[in-house]
């Protein structure tokens, strides 16, 4: 191998002399350009070599590879499988077994919906990297709510992908799918929701964007916190015992909506922890530390 390297260096020098007519400065310039080209090409060359190496079953160097692989990374293992969505009886009710509600003994409506996976490039990226399916939601009616069909825009899906890159994997894997609806409304009086937790999470595009009242990031983290609660009832119970002993809150949450109950309090604080951590730290250091140490890790 050393002999080969020496030979290459000699050939490089000879060719440089021939090309430049023995002009020393030009020789150095040519060598520099060749070296730069080799340096730029190295990752691609390395990937080609790795591909061949893997194909031949030689993984000796696999653990030493610090470069970003050219091939797509495998998706994170999601706690929910079968991310392609889902037709569930929207009127089905799931009584408090703890499967859909973190708080023992509480019932949760099953917000199954039908929809199709978005074909946007950013949606494919989200699916490949994080195992989360972005769904273009269809009509949906439950006992209490309705949702009109909606679709992810490229901008929303790109923003979602960027958001996922900032979220800890332990938190992220609790979510299986996120459906974009045009709107989400109460059946009785028509008041609107920004989002509904569940699998899939339902988001209202009317609530988002310049004409909406909440950012995609804040809403998504809020709803994903509910999915986290479902997978980690121990953490939710700890939150409840700490900040809502005997069902009574000890002090105000970070938002008015967080004052409705312990679960929403936790979801609101986690969303603010992400959006404006300093605000939460200053207003409620104890809640800040809880989120940091038990949820956002």
């Amino acid at each position: 191998m050393k002999k080969l390297r020496k030979l290459l260096v000699v050939l490089l020098l000879v060719s440089s002399v021939l090309m430049t007519g023995c002009d020393a400065s030009k020789i150095i310039e040519v060598i520099g350009k060749v070296a730069q080209g080799v340096q730029q090409a190295m990752p691609a060359i390395k990937n080609v070599i790795d591909t061949f190496t893997n194909a031949l079953g030689n993984n000796d160097n696999a653990n030493n590879n610090t470069q970003q692989p050219a091939v797509q990374q495998p998706a994170e293992t999601n706690t929910n499988t079968g991310a392609n969505v889902s037709v569930v009886d929207p009127n089905k009710e799931d009584v408090g077994t703890g499967t859909t509600a973190g708080q023992t003994g509480q019932a949760g409506a099953n917000y199954g919906t039908s929809g199709t996976a978005s074909t946007l490039a950013a949606a494919a990226e989200v699916k490949a990297k994080y195992g989360i399916t972005l769904v273009n939601g269809s009509n949906f009616t439950s006992n209490w709510e309705t949702a009109a069909p909606g679709a992810w825009t490229s901008q929303q899906a790109t923003a979602f992908a960027a958001l996922m890159a900032k979220i800890p994997a332990n938190f992220r894997v609790c979510t299986n799918a996120v459906a974009m609806q045009l709107n989400l409304k109460d059946k009785a009086d028509g008041h609107e929701f920004a989002g509904l937790g569940g699998d899939p999470i339902l988001l209202s595009s009317n609530a988002l964007g310049t004409n909406g009242y909440i950012t995609l990031e804040e809403l998504t983290v809020h709803e994903m916190t509910h999915q986290f609660q479902e997978k980690h009832p121990d953490v939710e119970n700890l939150w409840t015992s700490k900040f809502w002993p005997n069902g009574q809150q000890t002090r105000a949450s970070i938002t008015d909506y967080g004052n409705t109950n312990a679960a929403e309090d936790m979801a609101e604080c986690t969303a603010i922890f992400f959006m404006n951590p300093e605000l939460l730290r200053q207003q409620d250091p104890e809640r800040y530390e809880f989120v940091k140490n038990n949820i956002w890790k």
């Binding site: 006992n143 008041h191 920004a194 929403e264």
Partner: peptide, 17 residues
């Protein structure tokens, strides 16, 4: 007599006071 419909894990649009 009505069902005061609030979804599980919902997030409403909070009206300013």
């Amino acid at each position: 007599v009505l069902f005061i419909g609030m979804p599980v894990f919902a997030m409403i649009r909070t009206l300013p006071f």
